[in-house]
Each structure stands twice: as structure tokens, then as C-alpha cells.
Amino acid sequence: LADYWKCTSCNEMNPPLPSHCNRCWALRE
């Protein structure tokens, strides 16, 4: 979970790649 990032649109936790959210497809900010 070290490099995971949280989507600013839906708060889904996503892996470093790809740089878009797996749930709502918003790009990582």
C-alpha cells in the first residue's frame, strides 16, 4: 500500500500505475 494514491473524486485507493482511478477514471492529481 506504500505507493498507493487516493482518488480526489471518489476516494478510491489505486496503485501507482496507471495514473487514473480504477473506479471513476479520473486522472491522478
Rank of each mutant, 00 (worst) to 15 (best):
S19F: 15
L17N: 15
L27R: 11
R23K: 11
S19E: 14
R23W: 03
A26N: 06
A26V: 06
R23L: 04
N22T: 12
A26T: 12
C7S: 07
W25V: 12
S19D: 14
C24N: 03
N11L: 10
A26F: 02
P15N: 11
H20L: 09
A26D: 11
L27C: 03
S19R: 10
A2W: 08
L17R: 09
P18S: 13
R23F: 04
C21I: 01
D3L: 04
W25H: 15
T8L: 09
E29Q: 14
E12F: 05
S19Y: 10
W25S: 15
N22Y: 09
R28S: 06
P16Q: 05
S19T: 10
E29V: 09
C21P: 01
P16W: 02
A2V: 09
P18C: 12
W25D: 15
C24I: 03
C21Y: 00
P15H: 12
L17M: 09
M13I: 05
C24R: 00
H20V: 06
E29P: 15
E29S: 07
A26C: 04
A26K: 06
L27M: 07
A26I: 06
P15S: 07
P16V: 02
L27N: 09
R28W: 02
L1N: 11
W25T: 13
T8Q: 07
T8N: 01
R23P: 02
L17G: 13
C24Q: 00
C24D: 02
P15M: 05
L17Y: 05
S19K: 10
A26P: 05
L27P: 13
N14K: 07
R23H: 05
W5A: 04
L17Q: 10
P16I: 01
C24V: 00
P16H: 04
L17A: 14
N22Q: 14
C24W: 00
H20C: 01
H20P: 15
P16E: 02
N22D: 09
P15Q: 04
A26Q: 09
L17C: 10
P18H: 07
C21T: 02
W25N: 15
P15G: 10
C7G: 03
N11E: 03
L1W: 11
K6Q: 02
C21R: 01
L27W: 07
C21W: 01
